[in-house]
């Protein structure tokens, strides 16, 4: 089966139906493995056991950003190739990305309370994640107000692209505005600053969350395709009646 066959929604549904159980099983396994490693991960010498929150917080932050990446790619598919499957992919990614961004915000806040003594500080990273969440809410509001799914998808695609251009600028300006947070420590030149005993579980959890994202995304795409079928059938019925 060629990749091009996936472009047909019916074939896509068949593939999703076949792939989804395996993806679910892989997600569950990855989480079981990752959580076991998290349980035996050592405490941080400064942060104590609260470092366990990091295993949720950091993957959620990555996926919050990746969700917008998925929406951006889907937006190109919508605007350039006018592909209905790209519409569906973009629409399905928005609530999932927003949910992971929300997880990132809440866990960050719960991590901040014992570490910084307050639930919320207006530091650069928290604030830019908050702005990302607001952008997601804007996209969701747009889908919510659009009556016609095609029109809504095209509008959301433009907003996704505008956001993709703007997110780096927002991140830069928010960092310029306030640099209180610790500097990036996972990816930097000269190797990782995190001890392998903590980094390994973190990477496994990140992998597990990524699998979860794609499982949910594929399932939500399937729902959206079915929803559009229902809509077109109802329109057909109404036009015949």
């Amino acid at each position: 089966m060629a990749v091009i066959d996936l472009a047909n929604p019916t074939r896509f549904l068949a593939v999703v139906n076949r792939v989804l159980p395996w993806l679910m099983a892989a997600t569950i396994l990855a989480f079981a493995f990752g959580l076991a490693r998290v349980m035996y991960a050592p405490d941080d010498y400064q942060q104590g056991a609260t470092v366990k929150i990091m295993f949720l917080h950091v993957p959620a932050a990555w996926l919050g950003m990746m969700g917008w990446g998925v929406m951006t790619v889907a937006a190109l598919g919508t605007l350039v190739w006018r592909h209905p499957l790209a519409d569906v992919a973009g629409k399905a990614a928005a609530p999932i990305g927003a949910a992971f961004t929300f997880i990132c915000l809440v866990t960050g806040s719960l991590w901040g309370r014992p570490m910084w003594g307050t639930y919320w500080v207006w530091d650069a990273r928290l604030t830019s994640v908050l702005v990302l969440f607001l952008l997601y809410l804007g996209v969701l509001a747009l889908y919510w107000t659009a009556e016609d799914p095609g029109r809504g998808s095209r509008a959301a695609a433009i907003l996704a692209l505008v956001g993709a251009v703007n997110i780096p600028i927002i991140k830069f300006s928010v960092e310029w505005w306030n640099t209180l947070h610790q500097p990036a420590s996972i990816i930097r030149s000269g190797g990782s600053a995190i001890d392998p005993s903590i980094l390994m579980p973190l990477l496994i959890m990140a992998g597990a969350f990524t699998l979860l994202f794609f499982t949910l995304h594929l399932a939500a795409m399937r729902n959206e395709i079915l929803r559009r079928r229902v809509r077109s059938m109802r329109l057909m019925q109404a036009s015949r009646a």
Partner: peptide
């Protein structure tokens, strides 16, 4: 596994995550 003095926050963080994922 000893979660130390901030056990509430750790449990709350995991609970919120589980809640959101289950809701999704």
């Amino acid at each position: 596994m000893i979660l130390g003095p901030h056990v509430d926050f750790i449990v709350a963080a995991y609970a919120v995550t589980v809640f959101v994922v289950v809701a999704l």
